[in-house]
């Protein structure tokens, strides 16, 4: 097993393209666990933390570009980023423990392609784009299009995610992410839900995005959930309709972490609770 530390994206792409058994190491909070458990045995590990452009958070066209090697702890301490996209930052802040957050990255969470990834529903409702570098150059893809199944991504040979772009925060908007876990921390989402809303001048919801995690092989970005909110003030009737829609949209499985009935119920509960927070943030109340 080789360990490579490229210092440029081009070098990383070349290493990755040269070996189909190569694996990218960002924080390593998933890869190293699998290595130790004997579940993976890559021929080459490509550590991207020496690529300087991938280790920074920078403002770009009113939005935020977050390098693929930026740990979530740095996001959590970035006041301006947190002010714009508190839901995304909070979602990343839920992953693992304090120690894990010193390493874990948004891009790693995305490319690990777990249905239960906490940051992904939050990024999806924020309209985040993943920048992909590969042998044929660079392209930007909506984050929801990266995971293609459990543990699978749509990335091509030699491609890696180099950064996540969060667009400019719309006026009178807010986002939120909530997950359900049986413990209070150090756990994995049984259900996750991200909600982002924008209000018009009358305080009505003019735009909404709702994404459900851990209730399907990949994140569900639900138009029917969003429709229950759009045009309303987020009143109780709208929130109840949202909960019902989220329950209907969730397509979970029975497993050791929860039953189908439980996950569908809790998807509704979380959608309602996350929407309340997002609306309050849009109103500047939270």
């Amino acid at each position: 097993m080789r360990f490579e530390t490229p210092t440029s994206v081009d070098q990383a792409v070349a290493l990755l393209a040269a070996d189909p058994e190569a694996r990218v190491l960002a924080g390593g909070t998933d890869l190293l666990v699998r290595l130790r458990a004997g579940q993976v045995a890559p021929s080459v590990i490509i550590d991207i933390k020496r690529i300087s452009e991938m280790t920074v958070i920078s403002q770009e066209d009113g939005g935020w570009r977050i390098g693929a090697a930026v740990p979530s702890a740095e996001m959590n301490e970035h006041a301006a980023l947190k002010a714009d996209w508190p839901g995304v930052v909070e979602a990343a802040d839920l992953i693992g423990s304090t120690q894990i957050q010193g390493r874990a990255t948004l891009a790693g969470n995305l490319c690990n392609a777990s249905p239960a990834a906490d940051s992904v529903p939050a990024m999806v409702v924020a309209g985040a784009l993943a920048r992909i570098a590969g042998p044929n150059g660079t392209r930007d893809v909506a984050v929801q299009d990266i995971p293609s199944g459990v543990g699978k991504t749509s990335l091509g040979k030699g491609e890696l995610v180099t950064s996540i772009y969060l667009p400019p925060k719309p006026a009178h908007s807010g986002d939120a992410y909530l997950r359900f876990i049986p413990r209070s921390e150090m756990d994995i989402a049984v259900v996750g839900c991200g909600v982002a809303v924008a209000l018009d001048d009358q305080g009505k919801i003019s735009a909404a995005r709702v994404a459900l995690g851990a209730v399907a092989p990949t994140v569900i970005l639900s138009q029917s959930c969003a429709d229950t909110l759009i045009g309303t003030t987020g009143d109780d009737a709208a929130l109840d309709a949202l909960a019902a829609a989220a329950t209907a949209e969730a397509k979970p499985i029975d497993d050791k972490r929860g039953t189908i009935a439980f996950r569908k119920d809790v998807a509704g509960v979380l959608a309602k609770r996350a929407a309340k927070i997002a609306i309050a943030r849009a109103k500047g109340e939270a």
Partner: peptide, 29 residues
């Protein structure tokens, strides 16, 4: 009382042989 349990599948195999899915309380619990 609240979360710990050995979970067996229909195949008789233990499904949660680790501290992620065998949930002992953490300090914040």
């Amino acid at each position: 009382a609240i979360n710990e349990e050995y979970i067996y599948g229909d195949d008789g195999r233990l499904q949660n042989a680790g501290f992620l899915d065998y949930r002992i309380p953490v300090a914040s619990d």
